[in-house]
């Protein structure tokens, strides 16, 4: 009885129209997002790199050139990083006695 009391044309119309509206709105968003994506991707499209196999001699030559170039840009160093001693030369600038509040002298 409850089944028959329902206003079926109205219920079915609401359901169909409601679902179609959801679909239409999200399809619209698909197009908008595709357009946005296309705008961003087209800017970024990199030129295809031509494939070219390097021979072993060429690779060795490039590596040597790079090694020589980098060596020439750097001073020779001992490559020893151990700290043997620390020089703490006295200076009034690093003197602790000038940085701390003096204790008042106690006078009898």
């Amino acid at each position: 009885m409850m089944f028959l009391a329902v206003d079926w044309p109205s219920i079915l119309s609401f359901a169909l129209v409601g679902f179609l509206l959801v679909v239409v709105m999200l399809v619209l968003l698909v197009f908008i997002m595709k357009a946005m994506g296309a705008a961003f991707v087209s800017h970024k499209k990199a030129q295809p790199v031509e494939k070219h196999e390097l021979r072993e001699e060429e690779i060795a030559a490039i590596a040597t050139a790079l090694k020589l170039y980098k060596s020439s840009r750097h001073d020779k160093e001992s490559e020893v990083i151990t700290i043997h001693q620390i020089k703490r030369a006295y200076s009034p600038w690093n003197s602790k006695i000038h940085g701390l509040t003096q204790m008042p002298d106690y006078r009898k």
């Binding site: 959801v22 999200l26 994506g37």
Partner: peptide, 12 residues
């Protein structure tokens, strides 16, 4: 979702 906007259809 931005990378693949067609996902909106599955969500719908």
């Amino acid at each position: 979702l931005i990378a693949n906007p067609k996902s909106f259809l599955l969500g719908a």
